[in-house]
Design a protein around this nucleic acid. Structure first.
Lengths: 148, 148
DNA sequence: TCTACAAGCTCTAGCAACTACAGCTTCAAG
DNA sequence: CTTGAAGCTGTAGTTGCTAGAGCTTGTAGA
């Protein structure tokens, strides 16, 4: 046998996938992972299928897909007939979101840099340009929305 | 009088600053805004000082500062003696965070684009490359961390 | 002055996506 | 057989708001 036993407890699954134990239980709770078999003593026992599904989930989460989107993608991958178009739509929408976020963050980067260098932290000769800049939106070079 | 009365209720403050009424009450609750005077009937009455402080908070939030950081900045701006260095440190750290986030998002953008175009949503000739790509991290061109 | 009704109040619960306990049970190695 | 790590359930906390219920206050028109 190459890499893993046929069946494993939650800790081993966590280790193999890089997803925390609590998070695995959370995914089960919200319906992303199916309920696994249990040992006689009521402990979860996972197999290859669970590991693969969890890897899918983790990868998608790392890419910033919401749990809702992942639910949709998993539904698609379960009945893959007309999955392609729908999956493409989900991925494209998400790509759009990511690009928006990048654009907004770059505006923030510019303004933060301007603010931070205006008060370069020398001796306290300045009245703190940072605090002034934050107090006075009029100094701003653009409107900015939320981009956390 | 140019623009505003001396004293105003919460709705007017909300309108002038672009911060929602509930959010203003929330900021008071978490100690970002001081408790204002009240009318005889227990309604909040705000003045210029409050409006300025709230504008500061909003601007900083728009720039992605956490409430915790804003609390620190406000503390500094209240006693501005040695504020400059500390404010500079906060702003620089935040700038670093923003740049990290941008870098990670750009990696994601690349991978998402690769995934989305690999299954360009034509007729369903494909087995859905998107779902395969998500299932198999081995196809990935890099490690990626969380960047939501 | 009375009457509507908008705007205000407090308190509580909800969102996403986990994380962290408390207090218990089970598993596995020695 | 013992011991301690790992597992279990359930609840509450995190961040930064947002939304509602159910009440009170302010104010403009008649």
């Amino acid at each position: 046998m190459p890499v893993a036993e046929r069946v494993m407890p939650i800790g081993a699954l966590a280790e193999q996938t890089g997803v925390k134990v609590e998070t695995i239980r959370y995914y089960e709770q919200v319906g992303l992972l199916p309920e696994p078999e249990r040992s006689e003593g009521n402990q979860r026992r996972y197999g290859r299928r669970h590991r693969e599904r969890l890897a899918f989930i983790k990868h998608a989460r790392d890419l910033g897909f919401t749990v809702e989107s992942i639910r949709a993608l998993l539904r698609l991958s379960d009945k893959p007939d007309m999955a392609c178009d729908d999956a493409h739509a989900i991925a494209s929408a998400h790509l759009g979101d990511v690009r928006d976020k990048i654009a907004r963050l770059r505006l923030l980067e510019g303004e933060l840099q301007r603010i931070a260098t205006s008060c370069a932290g020398g001796v306290s000769a300045c009245d703190c340009a940072i605090i002034e800049a934050l107090a006075d939106h009029g100094q701003c070079h653009h409107e900015h929305g939320r981009a956390g």
